[in-house]
Design a binder for these strands. Structure first.
Lengths: 336, 336
DNA sequence: TCGACAACTGTAAACGTTTTCAGTTGGATG
DNA sequence: CATCCAACTGAAAACGTTTACAGTTGTCGA
């Protein structure tokens, strides 16, 4: 409630001196000011400062759904880094809707210095919307168009998908199913295509009826797996494009009594809680959500610092490694 | 970039008219102003507004760890409600540290209108710290002292713990173990005490060596269960105070080859992802994290509205119901 | 003792709003 | 046609900072 004038009066100086001392400059009566500040419990008003400086010390973080553990971990990573620089995190969930996303951003943008976003759509309208913000932006996990013009933080989806395919091939599988997420997103597309391409390079085609493409949701995973169960295709291995779909698929497979890895080897992208506790602990391609958050925040903080000045650091595209975590959901196919 | 002056000039009116029209008042030249606003892409500056009004349209949400799925869901619930009123959410994780919490709050408080918090400590210093904020506060899941003086959102821990005990008793168990969280928190204490009291009412004591109390963490759950395994106590049922400890305990039990529910019936507070997929799908007391978030946000928004005015609504203590979700981790004890 | 200079200080403007207060308009009423 | 009043309008102050600018000190060397 006390403002800088109160402090100045109590310390017997002008408000300029208080402001300067707060900014770390040398001031004759620093001690008196410090005293007055603690006596009054003064803290500078963030809005006034924001108004004057055009800075807010805040970063907007837009994710499809904060209650998804992966995104929550991502937010945590961003938060950890941002906090060290005194930056606040403003979060919002887009529900994978471009419209929600752009409305959210409209409301938030004036109160933040930068945006970290997992965009709902990778199309050009998203790119334009973000460019119009005129603030530092980092794209996480996905991208927007071929020349996004923003910093990027991705994981090495291609290597992950290739590792998955190679591993299953090495076990002897020749007949595959795949459940993939939306092909208009980088993770959906890359994981899908690289997996299939790796098989193709080994001379193996995946029949159309064993390819399921849809939302990155538990519900779609469940339905897709159910279809595979209902229309047997003779596949011996199933690759699923992310953890939420995988959980759905496991639900269906479990309900149908499909034994893993006995009847079907199962491998998915993204680790998840308790994957190791399932009847057949799931082999996964795991990725470092917290580290992604760190990388995104670092990029953003760096860019905030230089924003507006001519010596912009060049755009960066950080690609973090993924790793194959082998558990027990994959084995050699049953010989027949 | 455009400000209200630019809009006023373009529309040929004074800035007062623009401001009024934005506030929904009747204005002669509304159409021209609307036009100018869209032409210029004008959006009111949040800092200026915040400075002038002393309002920020933001709510701080402090949780122990945003990457914990339960808290993430809570945040999601708060966000859903807050969004409908145009409020932003500023999140931060306290890591269960009072010091971190109060520092965070110090940085955030000037930029928000209210605080939703799962406090790290339930002691008096937390109560004082929150009271000093002089803003609406809602405590979620925990409390601070006997007369907190804030709105509260809890789940019915007592009923849940009693339901758990009753259920296990009804199956015929007479020999119990318990793993509980910190006793200086409401959920830790109530769940622990009510469970034991319900058993006591049935004439059953739990031996000290089968009672484990510690952090609400996966790691503590793992260690506690390991101790139970290493020093057999002959228990036939185990109650665990929350989901993270439960996951740790399951890890230990699984590693030790303890069959559930064959050798041990297992029941815990809080549902978790995939609980239904485990070798023995876990019977749980489940609680509505999103609904808790909704309740908290509703309380806060209501209080923000009336803050400062004399007609404060009375403090509320919302207690949301929990439910026993029976799966397959509990059965009658093996007869001997 | 004087002047130069470094080091500090204070005044006032600016940031972009909202809102009070004192008008101005124009239609209805007598 | 004068008056009144409702409905609107604009100028200016205020919110709490930071910072350019123009001083004011005090020290040191000559």
């Amino acid at each position: 409630m006390a403002n800088i004038h109160d402090v100045a009066k109590l310390a017997g100086v002008s408000i300029a001196s208080v402001s300067r001392m707060l900014a770390g400059e040398n001031v004759r009566s620093a001690e008196a000011i410090r005293q007055a500040i603690t006596d009054l419990g003064y803290r500078p008003n963030a809005s006034a400062r924001g108004l004057r400086l055009g800075k807010h010390h805040s970063i907007a973080v837009i994710v499809p759904d904060i209650s998804n553990p992966y995104f929550a971990a991502l937010v945590r990573g961003i938060e950890e880094r941002a906090m060290t620089q005194g930056f606040r995190i403003v979060v919002a969930s887009s529900d994978e809707q471009f419209s929600a996303e752009s409305e959210l951003l409209g409301n938030l943008i004036d109160a933040v210095d930068a945006v970290a976003i997992v965009p709902a759509e990778e199309g050009d309208r998203t790119r334009r919307m973000l460019a119009d913000l005129n603030k530092p932006v980092v794209l996480i996990d996905r991208t927007v168009g071929d020349e996004p013009g923003f910093d990027l933080v991705h994981v090495d989806n291609a290597s992950g998908a290739k590792a998955a395919a190679d591993y299953l091939l090495s076990l002897g599988h020749r007949s595959f199913g795949i459940i993939s997420g939306r092909q208009d997103t980088v993770p959906g597309r890359v994981r899908h295509q690289v997996f299939l391409q790796t098989l193709a390079d080994a001379g193996i085609q995946v029949p159309a009826e064993a390819v399921k493409i849809g939302e990155f949701s538990r519900d779609f995973g469940r339905r897709a797996a159910q279809e595979l169960i209902d229309n047997p295709t003779g596949i011996t291995a199933l690759f699923v494009g992310n953890n939420t779909m995988a959980q759905g698929a496991l639900l269906s497979l479990h309900a149908a009594g499909v034994s893993i890895p006995g009847q079907l080897s199962f491998l998915c992208f993204d680790d998840f809680d308790l994957a190791e506790l399932l009847p057949a602990p799931v082999t996964v391609i795991s990725r470092p959500a917290i580290a992604e958050g760190h990388a995104a925040a670092d990029l953003l903080l760096e860019r905030i610092e230089h924003f507006g000045s001519p010596d912009q650091p060049p755009l960066e595209h950080k690609v973090l490694p993924v790793s194959l975590t082998i558990r027990q959901s994959c084995s050699a196919p049953a010989s027949n």
